[in-house]
């Protein structure tokens, strides 16, 4: 190619590139529209004065009032919060403890743990939910007569489905989630700091507390938030294991089925606002604490392990060769 012909080609290319870039930007805009229109609709109709969900008849706060004064809504909300908090705490504590130690188990035990984690991630929520239902029912049926028999007083406690079984189900996935997120982070972490700490005669516990955990802080927080969100929004596990505890998604589902009540829009709007605020807060907090955007645990690579993440085992090893390539090329 001669220098003379290269200039116009480059210009043409740049022009075409601009066109491509612009259409990409337009495309992105359309996808965001797609993502947000339903939410806008929900928010808009939560202020609708009429019952009709398809015609906007005027501004009113009726549905907020109604939802706020409905004891069933409040109870479901409180149940959901309790369940999500408990599941996320269990998931974070157990998951973090396990992730820190798992690499020092014997290879066989490591494999067992890996298989269990993998299972927890890939098992369809509906299958887990109904298995727990069956297991709780069977166990309670066997254990309760014993409890009643052995209990000193008359009021023997009885086991059954309820918040506990929902928490059990939700936290299974949560533990796997936290473990995956943390293991991915640990794999990237440089252990020189820990060595230095040990060289300086810090006890292992102190090293853990003062060196390892702070470095993992954002990942742990990210894991907690993901586990919480999953448990809070989950419908299907709770649907099977809830016993008599109503959760918010289940209440919304049964309200939808039995005729339309715009107060569900009000509840949803409150949830949207709370979530967005929490997310903004987390974003602000995390980007300030650690320099560089990548510190945001929800958005960096470990978050490919978001929600129902089977890719961690699959994509985990898959990524490394590609990293290697990148390193090889750039050096």
């Amino acid at each position: 190619m001669s220098a003379a012909s290269k200039v116009p080609t480059a210009m043409r290319r740049r022009k075409r590139r601009d066109a491509v870039d612009r259409s990409l930007a337009v495309y992105a805009g359309l996808v965001y529209l797609f993502l947000f229109v339903p939410i806008v609709i929900v928010v808009l109709f939560s202020f609708n004065s009429g019952r009709h969900v398809t015609q906007f008849e005027g501004f009113s706060m009726t549905w907020y009032d109604q939802a706020w004064n409905d004891p069933m809504v409040l109870e479901a909300l409180s149940n959901s919060l309790q369940i999500a908090t408990a599941s996320a705490v269990i998931a974070t504590v157990f998951g973090t403890a396990a992730a820190l130690a798992v690499r020092r188990l014997s290879p066989t035990t490591q494999r067992v743990v890996a298989i269990l984690t993998y299972l927890a991630v890939v098992i369809p929520a509906i299958v887990l939910g109904l298995s727990i239902l069956l297991a709780f029912v069977m166990f309670a049926d066997w254990a309760n007569p014993w409890l009643a028999y052995l209990w000193p007083g008359d009021d023997a406690p009885e086991l059954g489905l309820g918040k506990l079984s929902v928490i059990a189900g939700e936290s299974i996935f949560g533990i796997a989630l936290v473990m995956t997120v943390l293991q991915a982070r640990l794999a990237q972490m440089d252990d020189s700091l820990e060595r230095a700490s040990a060289d300086l005669y810090a006890t292992p516990w102190r090293t853990l507390r003062q060196v390892t955990l702070p470095q993992l802080g954002s990942a742990i927080f990210g894991g907690f938030v993901l586990a919480f969100t999953f448990a809070f929004d989950d419908f299907i596990i709770a649907f099977f294991t809830r016993g008599q505890s109503q959760t918010l998604p289940i209440l919304l589902f049964s309200s939808i089925r039995r005729g339309v009540n715009p107060s569900i829009n009000a509840i949803a709007t409150v949830l949207v606002v709370v979530t967005v605020l929490a997310l903004l807060l987390a974003l602000f907090f995390l980007t300030r604490r650690t320099p560089g955007g990548a510190a945001l645990p929800l958005l960096d690579d470990t978050s490919s392990a978001s929600r129902e993440d089977p890719a961690a085992p699959a994509a985990g090893p898959a990524r490394t060769p590609q990293e290697r390539t990148a390193e090889k090329v750039s050096t």
Binding site: I90, G95, A97, A98, T109, S131, A168, I172
Partner: peptide, 15 residues
């Protein structure tokens, strides 16, 4: 390594 026990136990009992 015992600290993996709670998670494993949870998996075994509830999964």
């Amino acid at each position: 390594t015992l600290s993996t026990a709670p998670a494993v136990a949870w998996f075994v009992v509830f999964m």
